[in-house]
């Protein structure tokens, strides 16, 4: 459903939005009115509301916390709600995330991403003798301890899969669990409350683990929360080879 394709996109403050659709190889072009400020999410909503209610994309919180609106904007993997369309830009292209099967239009099946995530045992495994539950005392851990300093900057992952898509290895189906899962693994490996370190190191040290990383830094550059998964991967490698935390 191409809309008035040849109008001058600069006149009247319009933005030309090109969206890759799920029918193989087709793209739709839409002209939407420019608003200020305007995010890619605003542009997609305008398309859905004014031109094509069938355009499929996902979003929830629109403030960069749910991590569900991830798309590729001019190729770059980013959250639609956090990506501004600068005033001097009059055309954008939006594609679904790389490396994940498309469900429809911009919605991808994040299944492979979560399978990879699940493979590192992403949850806390308390020790056998640890006191767990509503009447257990939380662990005492100093804020300036090495543990806390390793974990602190690696929390806040929203599972948006921007790093997975931006990773030249994971998105290209090269059997790599990907940056987000390894970041989570690092958080738990560094956590003194956790007792599954050996098992987890086995997973991250296996064929689809840390050795696949080529330090492209696509993950760190793409993370909307400013995390550094590449550093987490490096830490895990260090942990494996040199035994440091």
């Amino acid at each position: 459903m191409a809309d008035t394709a040849d109008a001058d996109t600069n006149a009247g403050g319009l933005v030309r939005v090109t969206v890759t659709r799920s029918v193989e190889g087709t793209r739709s072009e839409f002209l939407v009115a420019r608003i200020r400020p305007m995010t890619v999410l605003d542009a997609l909503l305008a398309v859905q509301r004014e031109h094509d209610p069938a355009l499929a994309f996902r979003f929830s919180c629109r403030v960069g916390m749910c991590g569900t609106c991830t798309v590729r904007v001019d190729g770059r993997s980013a959250l639609a709600c956090q990506t501004e369309i600068p005033a001097d830009t009059d055309r954008i292209r939006v594609d679904p995330l790389a490396g994940l099967p498309v469900v429809r239009d911009l919605i991808v099946d994040t299944g492979p991403f979560w399978q990879a995530w699940a493979s590192v045992r992403p949850y806390l495994v308390p020790g056998e003798d640890a006191d767990v539950g509503m009447d257990a005392e939380p662990a005492v851990i100093a804020p300036d301890s090495a543990e806390r300093r390793a974990i602190d900057p690696a929390l806040d992952c929203i599972g948006c899969a921007a790093c997975f898509s931006s990773c030249g290895i994971a998105s290209a189906h090269r059997d790599f669990v990907g940056p987000a899962a390894l970041n989570r693994a690092m958080v738990l490996v560094a956590d003194s409350r956790d007792s599954a370190t050996a098992e987890r190191l086995e997973v991250v040290g296996a064929e689809s683990g840390v050795d696949r990383c080529h330090y492209i830094y696509g993950c760190t550059a793409a993370c909307p929360k400013g995390l550094d998964p590449a550093r987490a991967i490096r830490r895990l490698r260090g942990r494996r080879f040199r035994g440091d935390r």
Partner: peptide, 24 residues
């Protein structure tokens, strides 16, 4: 308070700490 305990010990949340290492 009991749910905070559970979130920390079972669920694995890692809340910010005071200088003495307890939950801030």
């Amino acid at each position: 308070p009991r749910v905070i305990n559970e979130l920390e010990t079972r669920v694995g949340c890692f809340f910010d700490r005071r200088p003495d290492g307890r939950i801030h």
